[in-house]
């Protein structure tokens, strides 16, 4: 594994058991995250982007499990670790969580425990991983809260979550994630539940944090605008698979996969005019528990060919790092 790569997923497969059915939430996902960069994972609801991220630190519900593939991580100390082999909620993975790989979630309103002071919830992460006194922990939390733009941090440390607004709560969540100075920050739709103005502030803040600490970020979102704004590389997911992967310019300016193209067309743009019809992708995402042959996007694809119905497309890499899973490009360059 290259020195500048901190996380590598290879053929990851995560399944859920729902009643008697097996749902393939993540199916054969591979990507590499470079140190200090931001990787965007974009796709519709239920495409498996969150599950992919949760699989990295095995933060899966009881009925979900990694069934195939590997998650290789390079720790702060430079050690290579195979995260998917660790026992769920076991000691090994717990040392990674919070300390090496931290996470922030979609809904800051629900992410804080209502009965504890916000400061102590941030310090909890620190006290779990570092041998320091409560007083030192408090000092460090207050310092970080100050850096993250929380006014009167020493006073606000003793407030309860219900005394904070949504944007402030998400700042607290960023503080919780960043307090141990992790290598990787996984942001699972960090701005979806926030006002647009607050969204911009939070993204700006994450950007600053990344510059300051050199953190690598995995940004999960369904918002193409956020991807364009914050990411260096992007993975477009559909039905548990990455259908297109590349640098942000490659994917946005020269998108190859019909799904990516359709997705970009369905983003509303300011000044589009009232009468203009906003494109949508026809049909709905199929049931992930159904077995299928051929390309998963075929039923909704405008450029579908005969081969798409029966043969599953493999990965075709066009330029350096720009890869796509589509029959249209097979046999092209390489």
């Amino acid at each position: 594994m290259n020195k500048d790569i901190v996380l590598k997923l290879e053929n990851l497969q995560t399944k859920f058991k729902v009643g008697k059915r097996i749902v393939h939430a993540v199916n054969d996902v591979s990507f590499e995250l470079k140190s200090g960069t931001t990787l965007g994972v974009v796709g519709e609801s239920g495409c498996g982007k969150s599950v992919t991220a949760h699989s990295v630190i095995q933060l899966l519900p009881k009925n979900g499990m990694i069934t195939k593939g590997s998650v290789t991580y390079r720790s702060k100390a430079g050690e290579l670790m195979e995260l998917s082999s660790y026992k769920r909620n076991g000691k090994d993975i717990r040392q990674i969580r919070g300390q090496e790989i931290a996470m922030i979630f979609q809904d800051p309103m629900a992410s804080l425990d209502p009965v504890y002071k916000i400061g102590s919830q941030i310090a909890e992460n620190l006290l779990e991983h570092e041998k320091i006194s409560k007083k030192e922990a408090r000092a460090r939390v207050v310092k970080l809260l100050d850096e993250l733009g929380i006014p009167e941090p020493d006073k606000r440390y003793d407030d309860y979550p219900h005394q904070f607004s949504g944007g402030m709560k998400q700042r607290v969540m960023i503080a919780t994630a960043m307090i141990c100075n992790p290598n990787i920050l996984i942001a699972d739709e960090p701005t979806t539940a926030l006002d647009v103005t607050i969204q911009a502030q939070i993204l700006q803040l994450m950007n600053e944090v990344q510059k300051e600490h050199g953190t690598s970020i995995i940004m999960i979102t369904h918002n193409m605008g956020i991807i364009a704004e914050t990411c260096d590389e992007v993975a477009v997911m559909y039905m548990g698979k990455i259908v297109e992967f590349g640098l942000i310019e490659q994917v946005f300016n020269d998108s190859k996969h019909p799904y990516t193209k359709a997705l970009l067309k369905s983003v509303p743009v300011l000044g589009l005019g009232k009468g203009t019809k906003l494109e949508s992708i026809r049909g709905t995402t199929p049931d992930a528990s159904d077995a299928y042959e051929g390309c998963v996007f075929e039923p909704r694809c405008d450029s579908a060919m005969a081969i798409c119905k029966s043969v599953e497309p493999g990965e075709t890499c066009l330029a350096d790092a720009h890869c796509v899973r589509c029959h249209l490009y097979e046999g092209g360059s390489k």
């Binding site: 969580r97 931290a102 979630f105 992410s111 909890e124 992460n125 919780t176």
Partner: peptide, 8 residues
């Protein structure tokens, strides 16, 4: 989930 993500 957040508590678990802290490594508790």
């Amino acid at each position: 989930k957040v508590a678990r993500s802290k490594g508790l």
